[in-house]
Simulated scan of single mutants.
Amino acid sequence: MNEQIELLRQLDQFYPRARRSVPAARRFAEWALADWGLAAWERGADVSLCVSELATNAVVHGVPPGRGFLLRLCHDGALVRVEVHDSGTGVPVVAHPLLDEGGRGLLLVSALADTWGVGERNPGKIVWCEFALPEGRAVT
């Protein structure tokens, strides 16, 4: 019997509540994709942009003063998952593009990622999105 072993790569990085954390989170995601052998993946820019949007939301809306947020990146050979953990209250929603002045970050995430959602965390929440890899892409 041919048994496949599922490997999961996970990288975590904590950031303070500061605007400089957004480009730092984006650079971390780009480094992680390169480390996983996905630097040339055509959806890498989408992952990077979604990390920026979720990190921005955490800094602006989700992180109480004096706290930070956790960026978690996972890769299992089938998909790349981005999670932003913060201790803020509230549930993020996609803004209406014609009616709302702000809030277009989740609109971008919903357009670029294959799926996204919000999970519970105590305290706070986890906002996540996932990107499917081409079939047969091995964990490196």
Rank of each mutant, 00 (worst) to 15 (best):
N2A: 09
E3F: 13
Q4N: 12
E6F: 13
E6G: 11
L8T: 15
L8D: 14
L8I: 15
L8N: 15
R9E: 11
R9A: 13
L11H: 14
Q13V: 15
Q13P: 09
F14H: 14
F14D: 14
R17P: 00
R19H: 12
R20I: 08
R20W: 09
R20S: 14
V22I: 15
V22W: 00
P23C: 15
A24L: 14
A24R: 13
R26S: 11
R26Y: 06
F28W: 09
F28K: 13
A29E: 07
A32W: 07
L33K: 05
L33W: 03
A34V: 07
A34I: 08
D35L: 11
W36E: 01
W36N: 02
L38P: 01
L38S: 00
A39R: 13
A40R: 11
A40E: 12
A40N: 06
W41Q: 00
W41F: 10
E42H: 09
R43A: 04
L49V: 15
C50R: 04
V51A: 08
V51G: 05
S52G: 15
S52H: 07
L54G: 06
L54W: 01
A55V: 13
T56Y: 10
T56V: 06
A58G: 01
V59L: 10
V59M: 12
V59S: 09
G62T: 08
V63K: 03
P65E: 10
G66F: 10
G68Y: 11
L71P: 00
L71R: 05
R72D: 03
L73N: 04
C74L: 11
H75V: 08
H75I: 07
H75S: 07
D76M: 13
G77P: 03
A78V: 08
A78C: 10
L79W: 10
V80F: 08
V82Y: 04
E83N: 10
E83H: 09
H85K: 02
H85T: 02
H85N: 01
S87G: 09
T89E: 12
G90E: 04
G90C: 03
G90W: 01
G90Y: 01
V91Y: 06
V91W: 05
P92E: 07
V94P: 01
H96N: 13
L99W: 02
D100F: 01
E101V: 12
G102K: 02
G103S: 04
R104G: 06
R104K: 12
R104W: 03
G105V: 04
G105L: 05
L108T: 11
V109T: 06
V109S: 06
V109C: 05
L112Q: 04
L112N: 03
A113P: 02
D114V: 04
T115V: 04
T115E: 12
T115D: 13
W116G: 04
G117C: 05
G117L: 02
E120V: 11
P123D: 09
P123L: 08
P123S: 08
G124R: 05
G124A: 11
G124K: 06
I126K: 08
I126S: 08
V127I: 14
W128S: 01
W128A: 00
W128L: 08
F131V: 10
A132N: 01
P134Q: 10
P134V: 09
G136Y: 12
G136M: 12
V139Q: 06
V139M: 11
